[in-house]
């Protein structure tokens, strides 16, 4: 059974199982997930299932609904997605879920296949398109492009601010690095930032960087406002409007 977990500062404060009925989120007490916080609108957002997919819709809230740091008006949700409403986070948990039945797929006359084949008939292509359309995240935020930026707070670098545009950004002294460290003892390739579909991930290089004081153990997704320390350099990760 899929469920939504309401979290506040890493504590799970409420658990809401999902059924065919929509789940509403907002400041008013008659919501399924009431959140008593001024940053939350009375009727802020709702979660419901549509064509076998879980969908979140922002109800014209003042401060917006964010899925994995991206502001959304309407988006499909998948297991592990994090919805931010005000200072609260709602985690989508489908881990123990059996897959959602999709009639279109199960009824599609797909033969048992021994040899590898490439999807080619019109029907199968249509099927893929409908699947792709459901998986797509609609990020409709006209006029609001959020630019991932690193601001240098301390340490010797070639610039004071960097906009992340590349798939791979290397921090170090090497000529591969686009965030150039200065100084005799600066590491050649201290750390790396990798752009994924769902955000920017900080990974280790020759050094293990820290995020908000904690050394990372694996590539970690950066959140707006995170403080990064690599060697003697301190950087602030921001999504600028």
């Amino acid at each position: 059974m899929a469920r939504l977990l309401l979290k506040f500062e890493s504590e799970v404060v409420k658990e809401v199982p999902l059924s065919s009925r929509p789940v509403t989120i907002g400041r008013a007490p008659d919501n399924d997930i009431p959140i008593d916080n001024l940053a939350v609108s009375n009727y802020h957002a709702r979660v419901y299932s549509e064509a076998g997919c879980l969908v979140i819709e922002d109800l014209d809230s003042l401060n917006g609904t964010f899925v994995n740091e991206m502001r959304v008006e309407r988006a499909t949700l998948k297991d592990g997605d994090s919805i931010a409403v005000g200072k609260h986070h709602i985690l989508v948990d489908q881990a123990h879920d059996t897959a959602l039945p999709l009639d279109a797929f199960h009824k599609a006359p797909v033969p048992k296949v021994q040899e590898t084949m490439v999807l080619d008939t019109k029907q199968q292509r249509d099927l893929m398109q409908s699947v792709a359309a459901m998986g797509e995240r609609s990020q409709i935020a006209p006029g609001r492009v959020r630019v991932p930026t690193l601001v240098v707070l301390a340490g010797r670098t070639d610039r004071k601010e960097y906009v992340l545009t590349d798939r791979l950004t290397v921090i170090g002294k090497s000529n591969l690095a686009s965030i150039k460290l200065r100084g005799w003892f600066a590491p050649a390739m201290a750390a790396q930032i990798h752009k994924h579909d769902d955000g920017y991930f900080l990974g280790r290089g020759d050094r293990i960087p820290r995020i908000n004081g904690e050394p990372i153990s694996h590539p970690t997704r950066l959140s707006d406002g995170d403080l990064i320390e690599v060697g003697r350099v301190r950087l602030n990760f921001l999504y600028r409007d």
Binding site: T76, D79, A99, L100, F105, M128, V131, A132, G135
Partner: peptide, 16 residues
């Protein structure tokens, strides 16, 4: 692959 797309969109589990 078709099954990878179905897993990514949450319609099929990795086990399936």
């Amino acid at each position: 692959s078709l099954v990878a797309d179905l897993v990514r969109s949450g319609i099929m589990t990795p086990q399936q």
